[in-house]
Amino acid sequence: MTFQSEGQRSAESERFFADRSVDALMGSALSLTTELLLLSVRQHRIEEAVRGRDSRPAGGEVPLRPAERDWVRDRADQVVAAWLDPFGG
């Protein structure tokens, strides 16, 4: 992962997270979970359009609307729990 940026970052944080397999696993899971949530939102929009609840062109990339926020939040909690339950659940 290259999220670590320059600056006055102490060598200590490296010491703590030196475990490369954890780094690779968590980094890819974070990226994939984000993509999964984005796909879910797009799919939800298509479903809503098919059911006639949304007049927007299906799959639109328009920004999130306030009415969608709660749905996205719940879905985000679900995908995150599915990812992290093996560690924390």
Partner: peptide, 20 residues
């Protein structure tokens, strides 16, 4: 859309992180 969804994902992850 992507940026907002990523922000929601970060928030949800923080919720899980701070709780379970």
């Amino acid at each position: 859309l992507r940026e907002d969804v990523q922000r929601e994902l970060v928030l949800a992850t923080r919720r899980y992180w701070a709780g379970p």
